[in-house]
Computed example of a mutant assay.
Amino acid sequence: MSIEQWWPKLRPSTRERLIDNNGDAVPAETLVEIANAGGSVALDAWWVGEIGPSGFHFSDEAVDWIEAVGNGEAPGDR
């Protein structure tokens, strides 16, 4: 499932935290919420970036998508 589908299913506070901390490592509890909303952290998903010692990061394209949402813009679907 793509970010456009699971994003609206996140709690408003989670969406706000992701917007406010866009580009930072995503906390484990937020990844659980994303998974529960239908977002599988599969390596082939366009919104998945780095998964490493510093944690999970969205892809550059997903960071841009989140920034657009945070700015009140309507990002295009993928």
Rank of each mutant, 00 (worst) to 15 (best):
T14N: 04
P75H: 09
V48T: 12
E73H: 08
E33I: 04
H57P: 02
V41T: 13
R15L: 10
L31V: 06
D77M: 09
H57N: 09
N21S: 10
V69H: 00
V69N: 03
S13V: 12
T14K: 04
I19W: 00
S54C: 01
S40Q: 11
S59E: 08
E61Q: 14
E67W: 01
D64H: 04
P53N: 09
N22V: 12
G38H: 04
D64K: 13
V26Y: 00
W46A: 11
V63A: 09
G38C: 10
A62N: 07
D77R: 14
I34L: 15
G70K: 08
G39Y: 02
L18E: 02
L31T: 05
S59G: 07
N71Y: 01
W46E: 13
A37I: 03
I51G: 02
E29C: 11
P53S: 13
E50C: 07
D20Q: 15
D24Q: 15
T30A: 04
E61F: 02
A45W: 00
E67N: 14
G39R: 07
T14A: 13
L10F: 00
K9V: 05
E67K: 14
A74E: 14
A45I: 02
G23K: 06
P12A: 09
R17F: 13
E33C: 05
G72D: 09
A45M: 14
D24Y: 06
A45G: 06
D60R: 13
W65C: 11
H57R: 15
R78M: 04
R11I: 00
N36I: 04
N36C: 11
N36V: 05
I3L: 14
S13F: 02
I66G: 05
R11L: 14
E16H: 05
R78V: 10
P12M: 08
D20P: 01
A74C: 06
G72N: 11
W46G: 08
D77L: 13
D20R: 15
I19H: 02
W7Y: 08
N71H: 11
E4V: 07
E50N: 11
W47S: 12
E4H: 11
N22W: 00
R78F: 10
D64T: 12
R11A: 15
V63T: 14
V26L: 04
G76N: 08
S59F: 03
N71G: 06
A62L: 03
W7F: 06
L43H: 04
E29P: 02
A68Q: 15
S40H: 05
D20Y: 00
K9W: 01
R11V: 01
A28N: 08
A62G: 09
I19V: 15
D20H: 08
W46I: 03
E67Y: 02
M1D: 08
V69D: 00
G76C: 03
D24P: 00
S59H: 08
I3V: 10
E4F: 02
T30R: 02
E29I: 10
L43V: 09
W6G: 05
D77W: 01
E50H: 10
Q5M: 12
G72L: 09
I66H: 03
M1G: 11
G49R: 07
G76L: 13
P75T: 09
E4L: 03
L10I: 06
G55A: 04
P53H: 04
D77T: 14
D44V: 07
G76M: 10
I66Y: 00
V32N: 04
I66C: 07
I3G: 03
G52V: 07
S13A: 14
W65T: 12
A68H: 01
L43S: 11
D60V: 08
D44L: 06
Q5K: 15
E29A: 12
